[in-house]
Design a protein around this nucleic acid. Structure first.
Lengths: 219, 219
DNA sequence: ACAAAAGTGTTTCCTTTACACCCATGT
DNA sequence: ACATGGGTGTAAAGGAAACACTTTTGT
């Protein structure tokens, strides 16, 4: 098969928005840039896509090598391709949205990379067009809460309805009615009971897990 | 600013799904490939993204040069990046969904390009992974009908409610109740009256146009 | 006993659905 | 006159929203 005749063409990166709820606030994982451009500023973890690497594989690699995480929820967000979005040259970024439960948010920094969680409402100065990309991801997350079980990705394997409601309230930025929330969640038949919490400060709660860890669309 | 040190990297194309309703059927515009790979098969109109070309500009260029159209509704669909999706080498495709009103679906074929409308339910053999991409676009179109005014892109500037309902029914593949459809549409305050149809075979209908030609999300 | 989160039902409202007949026009 | 699509209202059902008190536990 005839190969493409070589000609100059854009580079492609994947950039990953890793969100988590930490202490009842929505956070995103950013990495401090140790090189120009935007040296010293924070940016999304990302990497160039290699010729022999699937997009999905590139995302998994970035999440592993830059954030030290694996096995988390990932979906494609959008592709950004303005000519001048990267001062180094023409770089098209395919952005992905990823979610990690709070219990897996510990980060280990070495001397090379500095990664840090930031509250989405208090972002530091960001390189590239990453502020805009984060806004797009935040909007996607908010709207998918309404019609899907995307929150799966933010919950540990067993959780109580109170904790699930706090996740919803944190992302949506408004309080929800407890009885209606429970009624809705239980009526969807997505949760199964898996025991009781122990050793909390208060009345123990029933614990649930999602029937399917894959995304489900409702209504 | 330091440029990217050159290294082999994927090519990027934009591929465009141009949909229209023609004679009460949903159609998509395909182009017969005159070169290998997949010579003689049909495929989506597409083109490589140049280094000095915004993604949006590339899409507009493809729609203009391959389909002879301009000024139509376009939105980004999804990016496809399997290693082996293009036999010529590593090519990442950023797919776009475009809509054109029936009145602007006339195509002019020259000797170089053969383009043709196909009913979405009767597609010819397709090259690449374009069958899968078309399915993704069709699903996007169906679901956006429910919660947005994406149908704007398929209507001429002035249209009757009957015609609008036929567009909805064609895409959704099921009949809708006339009274409920009208009630819903008019209650959204997206339409403004712009006169009456003349010279039809039957009772003249009120004509409407969309208040905003930009997409609106409802609910 | 009290502080804190868990748990539980009913009513109201609004949106969605189902459904049938007359009207205006061209032939 | 008839065939064809345009145009209209109301009732029933279902889902969403509002709302307050009791229970269980640890301290």
């Amino acid at each position: 098969m005839a190969k493409v005749t070589e000609f100059p063409h854009p580079y492609v990166t994947v950039d990953v928005l890793i969100f988590s709820i930490i202490e009842d606030e929505l956070n995103i994982l950013l990495i401090k840039r140790s090189n120009e451009p935007f040296k010293g500023k924070f940016a999304l973890p990302g990497g160039f896509v290699a010729v022999e690497e699937n997009l999905d594989a590139a995302v998994i690699r970035v999440i592993k090598t830059k954030a030290g995480m694996a096995g988390i929820y990932v979906e494609q967000l959008y592709s950004f391709g303005e000519i001048k979005r990267d001062p180094r040259g023409r770089v098209i970024s395919i952005a992905y949205l990823a979610l990690v439960p709070e219990e897996r948010t510990k980060i280990v920094n070495d001397e090379v990379h500095t990664i840090e969680w930031f509250k989405v409402n208090k972002l530091p100065p960001l390189g590239f067009d990453h502020k805009r990309i984060i806004e797009a991801g935040f909007n996607r997350l908010k709207s998918k809460l309404d019609y899907s079980n995307i929150a799966v990705g933010l919950m540990s394997q067993r959780f109580g309805l109170g904790g699930l409601q706090r996740v919803y309230e944190t992302i949506l930025g408004r309080p929800l009615d407890k009885r209606n929330f429970r009624k809705k969640m239980l009526s969807l038949d997505l949760l199964k009971e898996v025991g009781e919490s122990k050793g909390g400060r208060h009345r123990p709660s029933k614990l649930y897990s999602f029937e399917s860890s894959k995304p489900v669309f409702f209504k």
